[in-house]
Structure formats: structure tokens, C-alpha cells
């Protein structure tokens, strides 16, 4: 299963991506979580706390023509194996991150390495059984520039504000241009059925699911903790468990036999 989480700033992309990554891992999957935001945040939602390392900072070099390429011997599999870090529930996290050195060169090296690894993931045999959950930065930019070519599902996180809905519509339109991509709108911070109805009307689309507005989610954010660690039995987590099951169903992968499936009921 390959998903990318997109949406307007503050809609809850990282919380959705991080929580889904861990829930899918608990369901028996090998999960790679990708944070392609140069202002990283997924590590917090995964439960690693704030982590800014530019994990692929040294993975790229310039060729004779001044073009960036991955260094010899570094492909997608090696990048994951060597540079990703272990997060709770066995999730591997690979992030773009913030280069420590000032200036354009470290930034461009890091950016190109991450972009090229993202492009090779889908063709990398040893990762073929892996679930990939990508957390993209706010807005349409990375969807437009094909930063998540691995993704079969684009999950557009929307909160019940007009700005969030307009962003979601735009990002949805852009993501749909991808080959065989399915765009799914996930309502977040929903206060009741009227929110859900207004959002669906304004989106001109159905919703994958509604994640309720949840004080626990706000508090976890404030503390810099994973929602799954701070409030494992909160309504927001319960809703995301349902989403994890629904994604398994829609991807045709079903559940993994013999795994602990706290999301199933």
C-alpha cells in the first residue's frame, strides 16, 4: 500500500500520516514513513519527538555536468537501510530534514537525494512488500512537482474551513493528474454531522472518513507527543483505525494474517 498525505497547512497531515503509519505497522505491515517537508514534523507524530536531521544530506553529489545524482551504491533500498531511523511499532522514518550547513549546496544536495530516492522507491524490488506513507508539506507544490510518484492513494486532509476546502480541491485536482492515482478526502477536526455535510458539499466530493475534533489531539500536538502514545483510546485514533482498515480494503491487500489488529472490530 502506497499513500501520500497532503492538504493545507495545519489540517493535520502529519498526525494523520504518523498515526496511520504506526497503525498499519501494528497490523503486521513493514512501513516506511517519508517526511518530504524541509520543515520536518512527522517524527513528532510518530513519537520520536522533534528530529531535524537531513537524513540524505550526504547521499547526493554533482556529476560532471553539475547535475545532482545519488552517490554510487546508494539506491532507494540502501537509503532506507542506511539512513532511515527506527520509530515506534517498527516503522522506519526517512526524512528530507533541515541540513545543518548553511547555504544552497547542502540544501540542494539533500533535496535532490530525497527526490530521487522517492522516485526509485516504486521500482525497488526489496521494498515491494513495504507499505509507504508519505507526509508532504502544505499546499500543492510537491503534488504538482511529482514528489510522491510512489503513491497510489493521495489522502487529502481537510478541516472544516473554507480555506482548507479550497486548498483540498486544488490539491485534489493536481494529484488526479497522476497515473492511476486515487484521491481520497479525509475530513479532520470535525465537530458534527453538519461539518461533514458542508465539507462534502463544498468539496463536490464524498469523504473517505471523518476524524472528530479531539482535545486529546490538540494536547498531544502541544506536548510534541504522538497522538497514539498520548491518547491511544481517543476518538481520533479510533477513526484513524477505521481508515487504516478501509485503506487495506481499497488497496485490495486485505489484512495481514496473524497480526494484532487493534483496529478491527
Amino acid at each position: 500500500m502506497r499513500i501520500a498525505v497532503v492538504g493545507k497547512g495545519g489540517a493535520g497531515k502529519s498526525v494523520v500520516a504518523g498515526t496511520l503509519a504506526r497503525l498499519l505497522a501494528r497490523r503486521g505491515r513493514k512501513v516506511l514513513a517519508l517526511d518530504s517537508d524541509p520543515m520536518p514534523g512527522l517524527s513528532i507524530s510518530l513519537g520520536l519527538g522533534p528530529l531535524t536531521t537531513a537524513m540524505l544530506a550526504d547521499a547526493a553529489e554533482k556529476d560532471g555536468n553539475g547535475r545532482w545524482r545519488l552517490k554510487k551504491g546508494i539506491g532507494a533500498a540502501r537509503a532506507v537501510q542506511r539512513h532511515s531511523v527506527l520509530a515506534p511499532d517498527g516503522v522506519r522514518l526517512l526524512q528530507f530534514g533541515k541540513p545543518e550547513l548553511e547555504g544552497m549546496a547542502p540544501l540542494m544536495g539533500s533535496l535532490n537525494a530525497f527526490y530521487q530516492v522517492a522516485h526509485r522507491l516504486a521500482q525497488t524490488k526489496v521494498l515491494s512488500g513495504w507499505t509507504i506513507a508519505g507526509d508532504l508539506p502544505a499546499g500543492p507544490r510537491q503534488a504538482a512537482f511529482d514528489w510522491a510518484p510512489y503513491a497510489k492513494f493521495f489522502i487529502v486532509v481537510v478541516e472544516p474551513t473554507w480555506q482548507s476546502v479550497l486548498s483540498a480541491r486544488r490539491i485534489g485536482r493536481i494529484a488526479r493528474a497522476g497515473n492511476g492515482v486515487k484521491v481520497l478526502f479525509l475530513a479532520n477536526k470535525v465537530s458534527g454531522p453538519s461539518d461533514t455535510k458542508v465539507m462534502a458539499d463544498r468539496l463536490h466530493a464524498g469523504l473517505l472518513a471523518s476524524v472528530p475534533a479531539d482535545d486529546a489531539a490538540r494536547e498531544a500536538d502541544r506536548l510534541g507527543m504522538a497522538l497514539l502514545d498520548y491518547a491511544p483510546s481517543s476518538p481520533a485514533v479510533a477513526a484513524l483505525e477505521t481508515v487504516a482498515g478501509e485503506l487495506e480494503r481499497r488497496s485490495g491487500e486485505g489484512s495481514v494474517p496473524g497480526s494484532s489488529q487493534i483496529g478491527d472490530r
Binding site: 499546499g139 503534488a143 504538482a144 512537482f145 511529482d146 486544488r170 485536482r173 493536481i174 493528474a177
Partner: peptide, 10 residues
Amino acid sequence: RIDRANPGCP
């Protein structure tokens, strides 16, 4: 604004 895929340099 970016409102399509592969928009070139915005």
C-alpha cells in the same frame, strides 16, 4: 499560483 501538475518554475 500552482493549479496544475508540472507547472514549470512558479
